[in-house]
Design a protein around this nucleic acid. Structure first.
Length: 518
RNA sequence: GGCGCAUUGGUGUAGUUGGUUAACACGCUGCCCUCUCAAGGCAGAGAUCACGGGUUCGAGUCCCGUAUGCGCUACCA
């Protein structure tokens, strides 16, 4: 793909002198949500494509809800996805004092004012309901929601009351007439009448700076050129632009990302949907980071027409483009009740695709970590048996979906302590009583095979079944279950070779199905 | 309540200046391969492009309305 056939947006390329600086700014109030992870990815991709910087800012101004543990999980999550941030992490709470003085400066300049209205008691209902009720009441009584008796209070009077210790909040003075406009890179031209915008609170009466003030100030200080974030911030962007203007600063470019919703098009929430929305779940349930990153990239963004969907990071960086992001929310498809579809099918498919096609050398360390965690890793695998483990992993990875499968379905390759699948035993073993005698005989025969290769094992088994007058398939399938506990798996002769002569013979003679299932 | 955004097969999407049988991926069905299950190959089902109007010779694509969903509207972030 040449740059001619795939031009970058004019908006993002207008000034080459300006280095792109973007940030990911999560609030540390829980684990890293996949929607947030996707925002981080898009910011990172954009930064890398433009040769810019990707920064991390922790928005920990809500002291009650922010936790260090959450901050750690965010950092770990980014690391797992390979999204390395440039420069030091900015903690928003460190800047609170600067935010306060900036708000006071706005008051001094007459761009903001002190609001002495006593803080409203929060009623015992949902925030949303409170907003609706207030709006309805105002409409019914003909009250302009923007009327505030302190907006035009004389300066001296305001000073005097403040000096007297009367508590006040600071609100931005939003122009009465006019319209706010900006061009969102994804959502296009945005317009909002000032009459729709209430004078927003900048500083709470306890001196705590509020979100809209803090983001703007921090983004200015960090030199952010492009704000790439969730669509839930789209409408509030007008307020933030007002603040950039009040501070006399250049307004950055905005690109809002479509939200990620649950299958019923409801908001994807940790409370309702649990662990599927947490990034760490994917790590803990055996996802390959590159696979999940690839999947995440496809939530709300499409590669250029005709392109493939399985993309390396380098390809992602090269092909990524903010104007290929679409506006409709992405639906994250999963069925909580069905373990086979616990997360999006396509994510699962993509992970399987990565597991079976990625370079073995990259996969092995992940498999090692998994086997270690399940106490299935033996030190020999690092030394004398390194060739063996490579062959074994390469053989079994062909039909695995997650790294977990190496320790569950793949357990029999690494340990004698494996379970028999009930259905497999019934179908492949118990159905045919003769097997009770035939399997040990097959073991005897296999012990004579030299060398113990797949081809030799096949020749021996087929000769044996011919002599015994049974179908080869009968003993092949029975062997599979005897050796692996399962009804499915790789070509059986490869399995013989990998399991080896001794272990194969031993398992064929084990009689375990008759002991455990009779 | 107000304002905003969205709406293409089960899911993710393409279709960017309106122009032949609406394209791709996942999933699903069947066949081939075969020692099983996958993978792979081949074939197929599945969309009156949310609904209703309008503009036009012609609309998924433009305009208006309706519905639904979501977001924002807070001394939350």
């Amino acid at each position: 793909m040449t740059s001619d056939s795939w031009p970058l947006t004019s908006i993002t390329m207008t000034s080459n002198s300006m280095t792109v600086r973007v940030r990911f700014a999560p609030s540390p109030t829980g684990y890293l949500h996949i929607g947030a992870a996707r925002s981080a990815l898009f910011n990172w991709l954009f930064a890398h494509q433009m040769g810019g910087k990707f920064l991390l800012r922790i928005e920990d101004t809500d002291l009650q809800r922010s936790t260090d543990e959450s901050t750690r999980s965010i950092i770990e999550g980014l690391e797992w996805l390979g999204l390395v941030y440039d420069e030091d992490i900015v903690f928003q709470s460190d800047n609170a004092e600067k935010h306060r003085s900036a708000a006071r400066k706005l008051v001094a300049e007459g761009k903001a004012y002190r609001d002495f209205t006593p803080k409203e008691q929060r009623e015992d209902k949902s925030v949303k309901q409170g907003i609706v009720d207030r709006a309805r009441a105002h409409a019914a009584e003909g009250i302009d929601h923007r009327s505030n008796q302190y907006r035009d209070l004389a300066g001296e009077e305001s000073e005097r009351r403040a000096a007297a210790g009367e508590p006040f909040a600071i609100r931005l003075k939003v122009a009465r007439e006019g319209v706010s406009r900006f061009a969102d890179i994804v959502y296009g031209d945005q317009e909002r009448a000032f009459s729709e915008i209430e004078d927003l609170v900048l500083l709470r009466s306890d001196g705590h700076p509020l979100y809209n003030l803090s983001v703007v100030l921090d983004d200015i200080e960090m030199g952010i050129t492009h704000v790439i974030r969730g669509q839930d911030h789209l409408t509030n962007t007008h307020k933030q632009i007002l603040l950039y203007q009040a501070f006399g600063k250049e307004v950055p470019q905005f690109a809002h990302l479509p939200l990620i919703l649950a299958p019923n098009k409801a908001k994807l929430s940790k409370r309702k949907h649990g662990e599927v929305v947490s990034l760490t779940t994917y790590r803990d349930r055996g996802f390959v980071p590159a696979a999940f990153r690839n999947f995440l990239a496809l939530l709300g963004w499409t590669p250029p027409p005709g392109g493939k969907e399985i993309l390396t990071v380098a390809e992602l960086v090269q092909q990524f483009s903010l104007d290929q992001i679409h506006r409709a929310p992405a639906i994250f498809n999963f069925q909580e009740s069905d373990p086979r579809h616990w997360t999006d099918d396509k994510a699962l498919w993509m992970n399987a695709e990565y597991i079976r096609t990625m370079p073995l050398a990259e996969l092995l360390p992940m498999v090692k970590t998994e086997l270690r965690a399940e106490k299935l890793w033996r030190e020999e695998y690092d030394e004398d048996e390194s060739a063996w483990i490579e062959t074994a992993v390469d053989l079994i990875r062909q039909r695995f979906f997650t790294l977990k499968d190496f320790s569950s379905q793949g357990r029999a390759y690494f340990s004698e302590d494996f379970d028999f699948d009930d259905a497999a035993v019934r179908k492949n073993i118990l159905k045919e009583p003769k097997l009770n005698e035939l399997l040990p005989l097959l073991a005897d025969r296999l012990e004579t095979v030299e060398p113990f290769s797949a081809a030799q094992a096949e020749a021996a088994l087929r000769a044996f079944t011919d002599e015994a007058g049974v179908k080869a398939g009968l003993l092949i399938n029975a062997s599979r279950t005897m050796l692996t506990g399962q009804a499915v798996g790789p070509s059986m002769f490869e399995v013989f070779e990998i399991i080896g002569r001794e272990r194969s013979a031993m398992r064929l003679r084990s009689q375990r199905p008759w002991h455990e299932f009779s």
